[in-house]
Design a protein around this nucleic acid. Structure first.
Ligand SMILES: Nc1ncnc2c1ncn2[C@@H]1O[C@H](COP(=O)(O)OP(=O)(O)OP(=O)(O)O)[C@@H](O)[C@H]1O
Length: 698
DNA sequence: GTGTGGGCAATTTTT
DNA sequence: TTGCCCACAC
């Protein structure tokens, strides 16, 4: 710990703000402070650590425990998960039903869909009517920004202004539908908790006593209601430490307010402000690049990070012709690193959007290189997984008609109408013991034989204290035949379902399991968790992490920044910060790929420029492919003809050449037309793709 | 009312 | 590649 870090770690009571750039040890300081407090005799139970993801919380707590085993009892989680726990305990005092369940964005969209149909606000053939997803995002945005829907539409979706009155009706009906079914969405968790703390002084007091120290990581990405929650939780003692970096604020799109961190000292009087400037993560060449990237932001961030690490390689920009060539080149570079003895765990590939890695994923699978992927679609959003979860959700919440509808429609000959008719009989259900008998005695029971099986399932599921894994096993046994019937591609889906018991076994109660799957969806693809995988991650999901060797792909205009962001200057600035976050994850090497072309349905290939965030950087900061046709050998015009064009053998056998990673070596020969054999003193004989190696003569 | 197949558009980021 | 709408057959 350096001096500034030590100061932050050892400060006594009162508010503190650590605001500093990437890799300066903010998170580490937070962890050490937790351990320090415990060392000083603070009860671990009375410390609350709030983080951006639950994974971050458990990682930090693990690190704290390594410093001091007594940290095991420190409380941690996201704002959402802590809010959930509070509502489970105290929710009844604000008239929240005990049986409330949390819904995910897909459920929200389902409810919106139902509401739109019910209100009849969408005219037939109206092509411009916003998608359910768009409406859901808009409503959430207006809540998080705490603006009226009108204001939100006006600012962020002007093209929908004509639908405003209808959208308002949809929003209202959506709120009512949630209330009727005791459903709580992500935003509700925060706002209901605020209501709880605001209206229930005894709860506030109790919590003020329970949590004497509150620490928050990534504070730049919190929204207005989260900041208020923090104030409510700390009114009693003001022992609050927040850390963050305004230059890394990347969630404004969902209502995060960078003002939270900037104005923290105003909200908490006598705040001690700590700034850190020494970077412990990256080499100087990487910092030179990232400092430059962020210095070009409109806000003019004054970041001046330095390191005492010496040496390091210059970040490099490569311009593959298109997606396939990009994947090939990334694979090639990864192979080189692995050949040098780098572990896959030390390598990550970062990109803007979840789908940006699809092509690379197939390449990795073909080469049997194991990887984990963070970001993009998640496992619990798969429709067959949701089918299964619906059966468990109604066990917890009898009023969850959304789930009833879903599971009823799985029965043969039951569609939306029949499901609604059946649901009309289910409204007075109170507890799972009643489900089986009720379903069996339904007037529709004879006409729809599926109801009998369902009834039997619920008879055996009606065990209030059963472990989630047991319940899961029963539901799966029931559901698997349905899955086979319902989906053409059932083998793949059955394979996914096999992962569910494992997931369920990690929670000890049904409530916990349901909340966990929604609040902490398992990352990436289900199944085998490889021992030493490469990491693929969206830039958002990479926040707060680091890897020795980093590749950023699709750094081209239209992809990063995304087309969708390009006509809103504020969105472009957020993309810039996102690029900064991406690049600052690198410790030792940073290689950026910017494909020159992208294929569009219909119009074919279109040229893409280098991302504006990286354009015009001096070659001292970013090594670029040489311009001009001579060298490196141009990409073949189509993947099929690969190799056949590179006739050039630019180095004589025996010539001395230099390579970015391997240093100096001697050309030993060629392999085919596109591979060169070079002997490097320290690294031995290497076969390199001529096109990618970027050798230079010495 | 339910099930199915064709056509067509859209596709950022996440607790 | 998915997901949604629509028209049509049972
Ligand atoms: N005083 C120190 N001595 C040695 N290593 C340190 C020190 N402080 C931080 N580090 C290391 O620097 C790296 C970055 O630290 P950390 O993740 O805490 O930074 P951060 O400020 O939270 O970064 P970011 O904002 O980019 O997420 C980590 O590998 C950490 O172990």
């Amino acid at each position: 710990m350096n001096e500034a870090q030590t100061y932050a770690v050892t400060q006594g009571k009162g508010p503190m703000l650590v605001i500093a750039g990437a890799g300066t040890g903010k998170t580490r300081t937070l962890v050490h402070r937790v351990a320090h407090l415990v060392e000083q005799g603070v009860d671990a139970n009375s410390i609350l650590l709030l983080t951006f993801t639950r994974a971050a919380a458990s990682e930090m707590l693990t690190r704290a425990r390594e410093l001091n085993p007594a940290c095991a009892d420190v409380q941690g989680g996201t704002f959402h998960s802590v809010a959930h726990r509070l509502l489970r305990t105290y929710g009844e005092s604000i008239e929240l039903p005990r049986s409330f369940t949390i819904i995910d964005p897909a459920d929200v969209q389902q409810i919106i869909k139902g509401v739109v149909a019910e209100l009849g606000v969408k005219q037939k053939g109206d092509r411009k009517f916003p998608r359910n997803r768009t409406i859901a995002d808009l409503i959430s945005k207006s809540r998080n920004l705490e603006l009226s829907l009108e204001e939100t539409v006006f600012r962020h979706a002007e093209q929908l202004a004509g639908y405003l009155d209808r959208l308002e009706r949809v929003a209202k009906a959506f709120t009512q539908a949630k209330r009727d079914q005791a459903l709580v969405d992500y935003d509700d968790l925060l706002f209901l908790t605020e209501e709880l703390l605001k209206t229930q002084p005894h709860v506030r007091k109790e919590l003020g006593h329970r949590w004497r120290y509150i620490l928050v990581d990534e504070y730049q990405d919190t929204n207005a209601v989260q900041a208020r929650l923090l104030e409510w939780l700390t009114t009693e003692h003001q022992n609050v430490m927040v850390v963050g970096d305004d230059a890394q604020s990347i969630y404004a799109f969902r209502g995060a307010r960078v003002e939270n961190i900037l104005e923290f000292p105003k909200r908490f009087i006598n705040t001690k402000v700590v700034k850190l400037e020494r970077n412990y993560r990256s080499t100087q060449p990487i910092l030179d690049l990232t400092n430059e990237v962020i210095s070009r932001a409109e806000e003019g961030f004054a970041k001046n990070l330095y390191t005492e690490k010496t040496g390091g390689v210059r970040p490099e920009l490569l311009r593959p012709r298109e997606q396939k060539a990009q994947s090939r080149q990334v694979m090639e570079r990864i192979r080189e690193l692995l050949d040098q003895g780098v572990r896959p765990k030390e390598i990550a590939v970062i990109f803007r959007a979840g789908r940006d890695s699809f092509d690379l994923e197939s390449a990795l699978r073909a080469e049997r290189l194991p990887f984990v992927k963070y970001g993009g679609i998640n496992f619990v959003a798969l429709s067959h997984v949701k089918d299964v979860m619906a059966h468990l959700r109604v066990l917890a919440n009898p009023l969850d008609f959304l789930s009833w509808q879903r599971l009823l429609m799985l029965l043969p000959k039951v569609g939306p109408k029949t499901a609604q008719q059946i649901i009309a009989y289910l409204v007075d259900l109170n507890s799972p013991e009643e489900y089986g008998p009720k379903l069996a005695s339904l007037p529709q029971a004879t006409k729809y034989p599926g109801l009998k099986n369902l009834s039997e399932l619920f008879v055996s599921l009606a065990r209030p204290n059963a472990e989630p894994i047991r319940l899961m096993e029963e539901v799966l046994e029931y559901y698997e035949p349905i899955c086979v019937d319902a989906y053409e591609d059932y083998p793949r889906r059955l394979k996914d379902l096999k992962e569910l018991p494992g997931l369920a076994s990690q929670s000890s109660t049904l409530w916990e399991f349901l909340a966990d799957t929604v609040l902490d969806p398992p990352a990436g693809e289900p199944g085998e968790v490889p021992a030493d995988p490469l990491t693929l991650s969206t830039a958002h999901s990479a926040k707060g992490k680091e890897w020795p060797h980093l590749f950023v792909i699709w750094a081209s205009e239209g992809r990063f920044p995304a087309f969708a962001a390009m006509d809103d200057p504020q969105a472009v600035e957020e993309e810039r910060r996102l690029m900064y976050v991406a690049c600052t994850r690198a410790a030792k090497s940073l290689t950026i790929f910017s494909p020159q072309e992208q294929y569009f349905e219909g119009t074919g290939f279109r040229r893409l420029d280098v991302s504006r965030f990286l354009d015009d950087l001096p070659p001292e900061m970013l090594k670029k492919p040489q311009k001009g046709p001579i060298f490196p050998v141009p990409e073949p015009s189509s993947p099929e003809s690969r190799g056949s064009m590179s006739q050039a053998r630019p180095y004589k056998v025996g010539a001395k050449v230099s390579h970015q990673a391997f240093g100096q070596g001697k050309v030993m020969g060629y392999k085919g037309n596109d591979k060169i054999l070079v002997h490097f003193g320290s690294h031995g004989l290497k076969t390199l793709m001529l096109r990618l190696a970027n050798l230079s003569s010495v």
